[in-house]
Amino acid sequence: MKEHVDGIVQWLQNQVKASGTKGLVVGVSGGLDSAVVAHLIKRAVPENSLGVLLPIYTSEENMGHAHDVIESCGINDITIDLTDTHKTMYSEIKNQLEESNSFIDANDQLSSANLRARLRMSALYALAANYNYLVVGTDNASEYYTGYFTKYGDGGVDILPIVEFTKKEIREMADYLGVPSDIVRKKPSADLWEGQTDEDEMGTTYDKIDDYLKGKEIPEKDKNIIESMHAKTAHKRDALPRYKRS
């Protein structure tokens, strides 16, 4: 694990140098992946790394864990509460749709959740522009393969330092880096709505996805879910379609 961590840290330093930027910024949610990335960027650019807390109806537990991450790695931090911003923006969108009888109730929860992720992305890029930093992504291999991220939300980043590592490997990396154990062992959640967990939403587990990516046998039901998610989310990983004139 030391070899992996040292390699990522060196890679992060090279990315800063190659881009002509001064440092790195990451959104800290209180979850495992962002905790690991916060520790990594602090090691890479100790004086020019920033952890950003971006609560939107965020639970006290997750806010507490986010503060624990900041304290455990000693990274510079800032908190920008986007709850009112989201409330104002989504209420206006919803009102307009309802007035035109175009609102689809079944899509309400996901639309609202994706807006949260995209507001956070916008805030991170505003901060990155101010400091001349790169925005660092937190997707791991399991999330990236299944497309379990919001396009132009948590997927809207400059670099992806942990995308080659499974969820299990990220837990091992977190232990090595000194991420608080409560965060390492908690149920993964994007905190997109109250009570939301990643595995409930996906219909399979990270352990199954990790095993699938490692070429191990898993139940057919889980295999079908994973392959379906991968196929449906190809547009999130592929380059944007471009019309080519003749």
Rank of each mutant, 00 (worst) to 15 (best):
2 K>V: 07
3 E>T: 14
8 I>L: 08
8 I>V: 12
10 Q>G: 11
11 W>K: 15
13 Q>S: 14
13 Q>E: 14
14 N>A: 14
16 V>H: 03
17 K>C: 08
18 A>G: 05
20 G>A: 10
20 G>V: 06
20 G>P: 01
20 G>N: 08
22 K>C: 02
23 G>C: 03
23 G>F: 00
24 L>M: 07
26 V>N: 04
27 G>N: 01
27 G>H: 00
28 V>E: 00
28 V>C: 01
28 V>M: 03
28 V>Y: 00
29 S>V: 02
31 G>S: 04
31 G>L: 03
32 L>N: 01
32 L>S: 02
32 L>P: 00
32 L>V: 12
33 D>F: 02
33 D>A: 08
34 S>M: 05
35 A>V: 01
37 V>A: 10
38 A>L: 04
39 H>I: 02
39 H>D: 07
39 H>K: 07
41 I>P: 00
48 N>Y: 08
49 S>A: 14
52 V>T: 00
53 L>Q: 02
54 L>P: 00
57 Y>F: 12
57 Y>M: 11
60 E>F: 06
64 G>F: 05
65 H>P: 00
65 H>S: 11
69 V>G: 02
69 V>A: 05
74 G>K: 05
75 I>V: 15
75 I>M: 05
75 I>N: 02
76 N>S: 13
77 D>N: 15
78 I>W: 10
79 T>N: 04
79 T>V: 13
79 T>A: 04
82 L>I: 05
84 D>K: 15
86 H>S: 06
88 T>G: 09
89 M>N: 08
95 N>A: 14
96 Q>C: 12
96 Q>F: 10
98 E>A: 03
99 E>P: 02
103 F>S: 07
104 I>W: 10
105 D>H: 12
105 D>M: 13
108 D>Q: 08
109 Q>G: 02
111 S>E: 07
112 S>N: 12
112 S>A: 14
113 A>K: 09
115 L>A: 08
122 S>W: 02
127 L>G: 04
132 N>Q: 15
136 V>F: 05
136 V>H: 03
137 G>V: 01
138 T>C: 04
139 D>T: 15
141 A>M: 09
144 Y>L: 12
147 G>R: 03
147 G>S: 08
149 F>I: 08
150 T>N: 06
150 T>A: 11
151 K>F: 09
151 K>A: 08
157 V>E: 00
159 I>P: 01
159 I>Q: 11
160 L>Y: 06
161 P>Y: 02
164 E>L: 11
164 E>Y: 13
165 F>N: 04
166 T>C: 11
168 K>T: 14
168 K>I: 11
169 E>I: 09
171 R>Y: 05
171 R>Q: 15
173 M>Q: 08
173 M>W: 06
176 Y>G: 06
177 L>R: 04
177 L>M: 10
178 G>N: 12
182 D>V: 08
183 I>T: 07
185 R>E: 14
186 K>F: 06
186 K>E: 14
194 E>S: 14
195 G>S: 10
198 D>H: 13
199 E>F: 04
199 E>P: 01
200 D>C: 08
201 E>L: 07
203 G>N: 12
204 T>M: 07
205 T>E: 06
206 Y>R: 03
208 K>A: 15
209 I>W: 01
210 D>H: 07
212 Y>R: 07
214 K>H: 13
217 E>C: 04
218 I>M: 07
219 P>Q: 11
224 N>M: 13
225 I>M: 07
228 S>A: 14
233 T>R: 10
233 T>I: 10
233 T>A: 13
239 A>F: 12
239 A>M: 14
242 R>L: 13
244 K>G: 06
246 S>T: 09
